[in-house]
Computed example of a mutant assay.
Amino acid sequence: MNILVTGGTGLIGSEFIRQHQKKHSFTVVSRNRDKAQALLGGDIDILDSVSKIEDMSAFDAVINLAGEPIADKRWTDTQKRIICESRWSATAEIVAKINDCKTPPKVFISGSAIGFYGNQLDKQVTEDTQPNDEFTHQLCSKWESIANGVDNSVTRVVLLRTGVVLTDKGGALGKMALPFKLGVGGKLGHGNQYLSWIHLQDMVDAIAFLLENEACNGAFNLTAPGPVTNSEFSNQLASALNRPCLFTVPSFVMKIAMGESSTMILEGQQVIPQKLTTAGFEFTYPSLTVALAEIYQG
């Protein structure tokens, strides 16, 4: 396939391209062409904006992973607008280009997140679960709605409701692991809130599965089938690192440090990849124990 990727220099996009560039040809949209070329290699075509694409008919598929990192900064009103617009405007531009071309791509895979569901306490969450209306739901709901503006009678639309991606190549795990490496790690808040995660390799494999499986459409939870509580995650991470898990970071400390965005850590969701497993996808790393062992022991 000839595939257009936005967000191709990010953790997920760059790994997907690295693993599949012998099978597919890629064009990547990146504002920093030199950085993208250095990261992805000379065989990848780089465009600095979607507006430079004259005709989407050139592509068999589009994978849209662009967006401002959601947890890197405090959620001020300004930062919330940046987070939203970086996803909404980029997706709207792609949708318009797809709808305007004579021979649209066969599949449009667009990012989303399990934040779509909002706080669900300890309820088991599937793709059919009614969401709780809060900022992350409003962000993801509109993001998905824009993506669904593609004419799905011609182009298959798949939405990736992604959990916390675990890898030693970047992302959240390094930040989570640092306190444990320093010997001061422990659970966050009461520790009963769920963490829905997915190993990076399963994330890459799931995207490939959804790309190629023509029966798959709509929203899919990209999380492992074994979500765990924060307390369990903390203990397993400590064990994988051969470090103690002795401390508790009180909720009020997280709220002071992170502001409103701390809700993503202190509340959480127990998300199950129901549609993905029903479609026949098999996880290489279905349990946290196996995932952390691969990451830290190879």
Rank of each mutant, 00 (worst) to 15 (best):
D202A: 09
V29P: 15
R243W: 07
T229C: 14
L188D: 10
N119P: 05
N148E: 01
Y194E: 09
R243P: 06
K169F: 04
T27I: 02
L160W: 11
T229Q: 13
K102V: 13
K123N: 10
F59L: 13
L222W: 01
V204N: 03
T6A: 05
S262A: 13
I146W: 06
L121H: 14
A147L: 06
N99Q: 01
L266P: 00
I256N: 10
D43T: 15
N132I: 01
M1L: 11
T103Y: 15
L195S: 08
S49G: 10
V249K: 06
D202R: 13
Y285K: 14
F220M: 04
V50R: 06
E282C: 14
V184I: 08
G259Q: 11
L139Y: 03
H20V: 02
S110T: 14
P227M: 15
M254G: 06
F233G: 10
N152W: 04
K23I: 14
S30I: 04
T27S: 07
V28A: 11
T162V: 02
E93P: 01
S89A: 12
H190K: 15
Q120D: 03
P225Q: 10
M1E: 08
C140W: 01
E93G: 14
Q274L: 01
G280K: 02
E144I: 00
A96N: 07
P104G: 06
T103W: 05
D60T: 09
Q37F: 06
I46L: 13
Q120C: 14
S30D: 11
K23Y: 14
A219I: 13
C216F: 01
L40R: 01
P69D: 02
K35V: 14
N119E: 13
V125C: 11
L276E: 08
E127G: 02
H190P: 11
R18N: 11
P244H: 10
S30N: 15
K123P: 05
G10V: 00
D55F: 14
E134M: 03
F116V: 02
I83W: 12
G111M: 07
T278P: 00
I83Q: 10
Q297S: 14
G183I: 00
N32G: 15
T223Q: 08
A206G: 10
S153G: 15
Q130I: 01
F281V: 04
K181P: 06
T6D: 04
D60Q: 05
M254L: 13
I272E: 12
D34Y: 02
E134N: 01
L200S: 06
A36T: 09
V29H: 07
I83A: 04
I98T: 07
T167C: 08
N217F: 09
E54P: 00
Q120G: 10
P244D: 12
L166Q: 10
S196N: 00
G186I: 00
L211K: 09
K80C: 00
K169W: 01
L222K: 03
